[in-house]
Design a protein around this nucleic acid. Sequence first.
DNA 1: TCACAAAATGGAAATGATTATCATTTCCAA
DNA 2: TTGGAAATGATAATCATTTCCATTTTGTGA
Lengths: 121, 121
Amino acid sequence: MNKSDLKLIAVLERTGGFASAQELHQILRREGDGIGLTTVYRALQSLVDDKIVDLLRREDGEAIYRLCGDTHHHHLVCKGCGNTVEIEGGAIEKWAKTMAEEFGFREVGHTAEIFGICSKC
Amino acid sequence: MNKSDLKLIAVLERTGGFASAQELHQILRREGDGIGLTTVYRALQSLVDDKIVDLLRREDGEAIYRLCGDTHHHHLVCKGCGNTVEIEGGAIEKWAKTMAEEFGFREVGHTAEIFGICSKC
DNA sequence: TCACAAAATGGAAATGATTATCATTTCCAA
DNA sequence: TTGGAAATGATAATCATTTCCATTTTGTGA
């Protein structure tokens, strides 16, 4: 956890939602921070490894990042406005575990996201 | 629906699972078809528009395509050898539907994949 | 069969995100 | 203060995807 990591966390806290590496870099630059794009990518990578931020993908494949809470959760993402709701995923955990056992897999992780159009859009 | 579209559908039928545009192009080339990469991308795009194939994303953001078949299923992927098992996802369908309803989302789709190490690796 | 316009094609260049390289700077403990 | 490890950032490289544009194929009416 170094200075850059903390800067990124601060911006993510401030902005609240998801942001791409490029956007985060621009925000910091705009605020007068001379941080380099490389460092932004590196910091985000290490934050993802440490499970401090979530990484998911926009529809065009661009990576977007967001602070994650302490609990493991999934996302319900609006394709219209990008608004996101964190949801409970107990059923998924159980499903992933069951399936993995059935086929003899170990060190299992999973991804699960729901996409749709929210009531406002 | 033109000749290229049909070629792509044929390959996707044959291979069964997911494949990226680059992979599909290579497969066709290997089989002696001189199809261009541009045409592969174009055909896939139009098949997605016509809802004949699904587009989703690998973990690194690369687009992968599959025929939207009769049954919707999920994958258990080995991080070691890439071997993939198609699995039943009834629990997930229910979960996605329930969550979407709860938060007033419509036109809902979802992704769910399990990653792990298979017994051989 | 022929001519011709529209559609399809594919190579090459452009684009845009992400990663690798590497020289320089900052940090920190001894 | 100093030596070395970690952090930094500019630049170049990589890789999927798109755009451009010239050429080829196809379908259709004469």
